[in-house]
Design a protein around this nucleic acid. Structure first.
Length: 477
DNA sequence: TGAAATGTTGGGGCG
DNA sequence: ACGCCCCAACATTTC
């Protein structure tokens, strides 16, 4: 059998709209599909919920590959060891993959390139799952943008890309006859039954992604701007995890949306709003590449001496478990735990609560999200936590502190979201459901709630913690 | 992609 | 009829 091209899958778990795969196919060599689960873990290794997704996404990809009688060969270890070894074994001259723009991965790719060269093989890295290649969108001074709006305008001025590439008609596939692992043997699924319910909410893989996009366009798009901030409506696309794993490209989303807006100009405004969110996603990716420390250090210098609390076990545990006594916060944290996801607005509220009212370091929260979100993405997670904490790029001003009760009344007025995730509060009338401790005791009793028993007392006082945060933030100026 | 404090206005109750 | 007070409702400022 002639030497293969090694197609190294990473966060590009799809066959259509795949420039790297398209490139690999031009060579006419048989394709050797390889996935490597890195076990040399340092820094930000994929969290538990993310690995749950990955397991199912790889399984879905294998199902797609079945149609080409191709197999995905899995390995565990360091790509720096495994790929040179595979090249040696198979006589391959080229390894093809899609770019991952995380700083640690970029550094590893550089090493890999050298190491493969010693085996006379090249590493061809094609554009990753972004609209614009990080580094290619710069301001007048040739510097990276630090503020979203000008970045957004610069992107619009170039025109948002909407290229699509059909899935390959046929492929020649390579048969590897030495030992490799099955997807199950990568042991990606978490121990215990925590993630078992995720399947009720998600269908990882490209076909799940396309199904979700179709459903979004059909039922949510027309009310996107009006309803996307309402947690119970959640008229958002739910495509974040699909995008993270490269099961779908943002270009595909823009393409499909533009077809809709051509057909019905009424939704053009909605489409712009969705596209704007896609540009935010690119922005985060660009920022992390230009400022590689921002997954670990505050972007703004002055925040390095801010007195974040190192630990507050009681508060942190209450927050993680959804037992803070503030229903909107608790609903969000339980949605996260049970579904691997949280509505965007609620993410902002719980993050503000932890970092501003609770004064816990934003990395504490980022770590929890990292482990529990199916859409965990280093660039998005880091930028957004820093944004809320006030220390990031284009950050929320320090005095912007969300009041979870006010936010709850505003965006979950009927209490539907709270009732969905905090069933013990179900019988409380909407008037009191946002702040149960204000309810008359007879009403609480009638609803079957004893504060401190069925539902906790508030874990902290909003007014005093707000004042405390304002003091601390002010002294930083 | 706030919230709270403070300021302003205007309608209605009331003596 | 009139002025006074109260207090929503809204606007502005401050953190």
């Amino acid at each position: 059998m002639s030497a293969p091209i090694i197609y190294w899958l990473r966060n590009d778990l799809r066959l259509q709209d795949n420039p790297a795969l398209q490139h690999a196919l031009t060579s006419q060599c048989p394709l050797f599909f390889v996935y490597i689960h890195a076990t040399d873990g340092q820094g930000w290794v994929a969290g538990s919920a993310s690995r749950w997704w990955l397991h199912h996404s790889l399984t879905a990809l294998q199902a797609q590959l079945d149609k080409y009688t191709a197999r995905l060969y899995c390995f565990a270890g360091s790509p720096l060891d495994i790929l040179p070894e595979l090249v040696k074994q198979t006589g391959s001259r080229e390894v093809v993959c899609s770019r991952v723009y995380e700083p640690a991965v970029l550094a590893q790719d550089a090493k890999l390139k050298t190491s493969l060269a010693r085996h006379s093989a090249r590493l061809e890295i094609c554009q990753g799952n972004v609209l614009f290649v990080p580094g290619s969108v710069l301001n007048q001074q040739d510097k990276a943008y630090k503020v979203f709006t000008p970045f957004y305008k610069a992107c619009l001025a170039r025109g948002l890309p909407a290229e699509i590439i059909p899935r390959p008609k046929k492929m020649t596939v390579y048969r590897y006859d030495k030992p490799s692992l099955s997807i199950a043997e990568l042991r990606l699924l978490p121990d215990g039954n925590w993630a078992d319910g995720f399947g009720d909410y998600w269908q990882p893989g490209a076909s799940g992604a396309h199904g979700r996009l179709r459903a979004f366009i059909k039922t949510e798009l027309c009310r996107y701007r009006e309803q996307r901030d309402v947690p119970r409506q959640d008229a958002t696309s739910h495509l974040s995890a699909h995008l993270h794993f490269g099961e779908m490209t943002p270009q595909r989303i823009i393409y499909e949306l533009s077809r809709v807006s051509n057909d019905s100009p009424v939704v053009a405004g909605e489409v712009d709003a969705v596209n704007r969110q896609l540009v935010w996603r690119d922005f985060a990716c660009h920022v992390l590449m230009h400022y590689p420390l921002t997954s670990d250090e505050p972007f703004q210098e002055k925040f390095r001496r801010f007195a974040w609390k190192r630990g507050d076990k009681k508060l942190l545990t209450a927050w993680q478990k959804g037992l803070t006594g503030y229903p909107l916060i608790d609903a969000g944290m339980r949605e996260l735990w049970q579904s691997g996801y949280m509505h965007n607005r609620v993410r902002m509220v719980v993050a503000s609560f932890l970092t501003k009212n609770g004064l816990l370091h934003w990395k504490t929260g980022a770590q929890w999200f990292w482990d529990t979100l199916v859409d965990a993405d280093l660039a998005q997670n880091s930028m957004n936590w820093q944004w809320v904490a006030g220390c990031g790029v284009d950050a929320a001003p320090y005095f912007r502190i969300f009041n979870p009760i006010t936010q709850s009344r505003k965006f979950d007025a009927g209490g539907d979201y709270i009732r969905r995730w905090c069933p013990e509060l179900r019988s409380l009338p909407s008037k009191y459901i946002h702040a149960p401790w204000t309810a008359p005791s007879a009403l609480l009793q009638q609803a079957g709630i004893r504060l401190g028993m069925e539902y906790p007392e508030p874990v902290l006082d909003l007014t005093t913690t707000r004042q405390r945060a304002l003091q601390l933030f002010k002294s930083l100026k």
